[in-house]
Amino acid sequence: MGAEFVALSLPPILIGSLAALACALPGNFLLLRRQALIGDAISHVVLPGIVVGFLLTGTVSTWPMLLGAAAAALVAVGAIQLIQRIGRIEPGAAMGVVFTTLFAAGVLLLEQSDTSNVHLDVQHALYGNLESLIWIDATGWQSLLDPEALAWMPPELIRMALVCLIVMAFIGLLWRPLAISTFDEGFARTLGIPATLLGLALVTVSAIAAVAAFDAVGSIIVIAMFICPPATARLMTDRLAVQVALSAVFALVSAVVGYVLAGYGPIWLGYADAVSAAGMIATVSGLLLAAAALVGPRRRGQSA
């Protein structure tokens, strides 16, 4: 089991867990600020950006794609403002229209462009290529200590770990101002907390997490992880710090259990093929939320 597990299952599980964590942690604050759909939005908007980045450079390297994603996010924000002003459409609907349109445009671009020789297609955009993130050079657990083998780890792993660190550092260092300004923005300003800047920083960090996770695991996980683990955690506690900690636990549980179920569940049930890990991870996170909604101690109407 050792060698095969380290080479084939460990990297995807780690990458999936890191991606889940990177999205779920800022998701707590977005959810409480009623901005939870921003994760959804970003992960849709980045598709055309990534495709354009690819078309302009002809490679699937990270930087052009990330820059393309960032540019697409800017275009989206501008378009939302424009539609709200000119079309007199409420903000939520304007968001929905812009993100769906941009995602659809991304799909069209993908179809029309010659991306057949690279792993850039609609399926990839939706549920990523988690299973293909393998570590061929690994021969067993001892490879974790072998610098030569380590050099051939999937680059997504390093990138996702880095992004996860950025997210955790941001939330850890700015915990107090984030909590205060999320609860009571006006009061936060009177304390001298730059609330607008902090809100922008939160959205930016969320965008970094969304783009990195999108690249590694596809948009389904991104959308699910921004909302499901925080929402589940909210139903379990009335304390912000506990909620954030629990959301991390639920994100990790979803990633690990989802990956294992996708890989082995169908076989246990007698089917031949594994199912999409991204789909299963997102499904597990949704089931956790459903369970918490049914029996969680802090459902609406439940008192302490």
């Binding site: 409480l32 260092l173 700015l174 107090r176 101002p177 909590a179 205060i180 999320t182 609860f183 009571d184 006006g186 009061f187 304390l191 001298g192 907390i193 909210r234 506690t237 009335d238 304390r239 912000l240 506990v242 909620q243 802090r298």
Partner: peptide, 28 residues
């Protein structure tokens, strides 16, 4: 602030809210 300006469903306890007032003294 006006009481209606915040979401009272926020996951926080009474004492946590009061401790927010100490922010400038406790620091980042």
């Amino acid at each position: 602030p006006q009481r209606a300006s915040v979401d009272w469903d926020f996951p926080t306890r009474v004492i946590d809210v009061v401790e927010m007032g100490l922010y400038r003294r406790v620091g980042l």
